[in-house]
Design a protein around this nucleic acid. Sequence first.
DNA 1: CGCCTTATTGAACCCCATCAATATCTGTGG
DNA 2: CCACAGATATTGATGGGGTTCAATAAGGCG
Lengths: 244, 244
Amino acid sequence: MNDDRKDIHNSQIPNLCRSCEARHQGICGALSNEQLIRLNRYSSQRSITSGSELIGDEEEISTYANVLSGVIKLAKTMSDGRQQIVGLQFAPDFLGRPFHSSSRVAAEAASDVKLCTFPKALIETMISERPELEHRLHRQALRELDEAREWMLTLGRKTAAEKVASFLHMIARNVDPSRNPEDRGPSTFDLPLTRADIADFLGLTIETVSRQLTKLRKASIIEIENNRHVHVPDMERLERAAGN
Amino acid sequence: MNDDRKDIHNSQIPNLCRSCEARHQGICGALSNEQLIRLNRYSSQRSITSGSELIGDEEEISTYANVLSGVIKLAKTMSDGRQQIVGLQFAPDFLGRPFHSSSRVAAEAASDVKLCTFPKALIETMISERPELEHRLHRQALRELDEAREWMLTLGRKTAAEKVASFLHMIARNVDPSRNPEDRGPSTFDLPLTRADIADFLGLTIETVSRQLTKLRKASIIEIENNRHVHVPDMERLERAAGN
DNA sequence: CGCCTTATTGAACCCCATCAATATCTGTGG
DNA sequence: CCACAGATATTGATGGGGTTCAATAAGGCG
């Protein structure tokens, strides 16, 4: 499957891509060297500050992007302002909705974010050239679907306490990609979301999130410093609190 | 893309597939004639009675299937019995989770169901032979993802009244596939789920679902006969009740 | 009709939302 | 370095939407 890689000498691989985290995990790993060089010509890195909106709900989209660092939140909003976060994207996720001209969700930087953006049309051409690329995107879609369904259980059936514990557990798993998901040992991380965002993710209010965090703290399941920095001494206790 | 279809005369297309609803809308429409004939040799139609479990949670799966008629519910269950329905599959949906040996959800027939089942390994071979097949599955995965996110908003942020109205609206859209989704005129359909299933879908209790249906009935937004048969005189009123 | 399952309706309670006040963090300028 | 202001988070008091428990009603099928 990678036989065409020989055609172009490795030294021609763009430096940008060489050092890019997304090179081997994200979609770019599915490209031929020639495609990688072509894509690079039309791509650009962008730094986004926390809070800025990348794509509005139902907005036309003409570019896709790889998340290089930071966290993107995908949110749906009702006309009266009620909001629900329906997904979080971490590096090296692909950001975009293939085969649709408009997004069904709004995308906003939850932290400072680095992106590598490229034209939608170019990616769609490459998809048709290289099945492996579509395969990667398909796998990401299936993974996101699994995650969305996991959250449907959380949203529909868990208590506020279980929701908050589930959220912390999910973040712990995602923020450190090198960590083995089976590892039940201690973990330390920074929350990438404000209390308001956490509430919008869990279908709760800010106050309830805050109260449940206090309860977890008083039960010694977590420790919190400076509102954002979390330490979990025993992952298994957190999982139990999450209802798993 | 269909040039290889000439190779085999149309008359060789299996009768089963000829009359199968899934032939041109589901995944089979992406197969070459040769593949269709090969798949047919190893596939079998099954009739499933309402309530029987097709796949358990985390169960190994060795077959995939097309839904020919009826409704399948996909559900997640917690160890203490709390349940959440995370998806419904209507004809001609593809049933299965490609690239994973085990399912993350339980699948159960919500009504009497007809399936066309085939070996997992055979489909995966065909995926690698024919990018168009993966493309269709990819599109279905993206569509299911859109639906799952739509329901996350419903589960997390809507009131019980809005949830029930949203559910009725979704069913009205899916049960009659020939209907134009933009059509706001009257609609009549049978609920494919019991009150208990509706509750598990909406993250509510049976009692709350029942009360909200009564409220919708008293507001003349719906009419119900024999518990299952629903008539919606004005789709726009239902949409408003759903919070759209 | 009679039995069993499924659905509706009622009453009491509870979890979480709402409203409100206080505390903590962050960063900016004196 | 501290003071201040605005944003963010915590904590408290109260109320309501949905659950729970319980009884009645309506369908479905022999």
